[in-house]
Amino acid sequence: MMKTDKGMSIIVKTVTRISVWLIILYGIYIIVHGHLTPGGGFGGGVVIALAFLNVMLAYGKEFTEKWLNFQLLHDIESSSVTVFLVVGILGISLGGAFLANFLSKGDLFELYSAGVIPVFNILIGIKVGISLFLVVWLLAGINPEEEDE
């Protein structure tokens, strides 16, 4: 990440530069282990959204806008739900009911277990992470003093 004059002080920027990837990693950990430990798609998604918001607070909005491709984020968000529904529909043909399990259940307490639940957790995590970030981004972008249109 490059240096800019906008945003908070150099200390905050440096700490954010190091910690943001750790926060994202922690979010991914929570999402992937959703079927074994407390947490899951929503909790992990919120952590990922907070990582992005951290960047936004420390580096300012202009930098974040350059750093992230918002059109891509929007497409990923919409397609994660579509994929969720497609996996659910696959459950009808392969598992007998909507959202039913059709993958191998695996061994208890292993990472690769619990059938389709980890898949749903990952999709929900992507959706929650991006949409929560976008909600706060949009709310922060409205200037209450000026009237648009």
């Binding site: 929560l132 909600v135 949009l138 709310l139 409205i142 209450p144 003093e145 000026e146 009237e147 648009d148």
Partner: peptide
């Protein structure tokens, strides 16, 4: 969470108007 976000955005818009 969704309700609160929606209400807050409506509140900001109301303040604008």
């Amino acid at each position: 969470l969704g309700t609160t976000a929606l209400l807050v955005s409506l509140a900001i818009k109301l303040f604008q108007k």
